[in-house]
């Protein structure tokens, strides 16, 4: 047993150096070399200032922007230092109340939309940082955004269509719209007239 302990100690030290320092070190080096932008978090800059990451959702509340899903990350939502889902179960009164409040808010924000509300617009994501909304959710908000920007609805819909990401390899995952990318495109193409 004593001999096993010696071997065990040496093996633990060796693995710590090999898999805990050398392996992540080399991966960091190679990734920084090959995929620098992605390895650093797919950051998006505007006028030299980091405005977020293309992979991480952020809050939008103004009517001229598309709104993301509700978020349970941090106190105000979309806090990447506190990624989390709501962890509310299906029979929790709090979940029901929260979704009801979100539904009322959604109807108030989008008076021109009368169809059933897409599920993703009322539910919090698993990470609380979901950068996407469903295509249906974006389309439900299109009229509000168009009015707030004094733009034609077809132009907005065209922007949604061009911001839509399709399933990977044609079958993996779901079609989705990146909210930050769409809102950036809006600001570029239809600057809000004051």
């Amino acid at each position: 047993m004593l001999q096993q302990l010696g071997t065990a100690l040496r093996m633990t030290i060796l693995l710590t150096v090999l898999t805990g320092l050398i392996y992540p070190g080399i991966v960091t080096g190679v990734c920084q070399l090959l995929f620098k932008d992605k390895a650093d978090g797919s950051l998006i800059l505007r006028n030299g200032q980091v405005i977020g990451s293309g992979l991480i959702g952020q809050n939008f509340a103004k009517p001229e922007y598309f709104h993301p899903r509700p978020s349970a990350a941090g106190n105000d939502g979309y806090d990447p230092t506190s990624s989390s889902g709501s962890n509310l179960g299906p029979t929790n009164q709090k979940l029901y109340d929260r979704i009801k409040a979100s539904a009322d808010q959604f109807r108030k924000d989008n008076p021109d939309y009368s169809g059933p509300i897409p599920a993703d617009a009322l539910t919090t994501s698993a990470s609380g940082l979901d950068p996407h909304i469903s295509v249906a959710n974006a389309e439900a908000q299109a009229e509000r955004v168009a009015k707030a920007r004094g733009a034609n609805l077809p132009i907005i819909k065209k922007l949604i269509a061009s911001a839509t990401e399709h399933r990977d390899l044609g079958f993996l995952g779901e079609p989705r719209v990146n909210v930050l990318a769409l809102n950036l495109a809006l600001d570029r193409q239809i600057p809000k007239t004051k």
Partner: peptide, 15 residues
């Protein structure tokens, strides 16, 4: 076609 339906609480759109 444009959304998944179902129980989306605690799920990500891309998945």
């Amino acid at each position: 076609i444009a959304q998944t339906g179902g129980n989306m609480e605690g799920k990500e759109i891309r998945f």
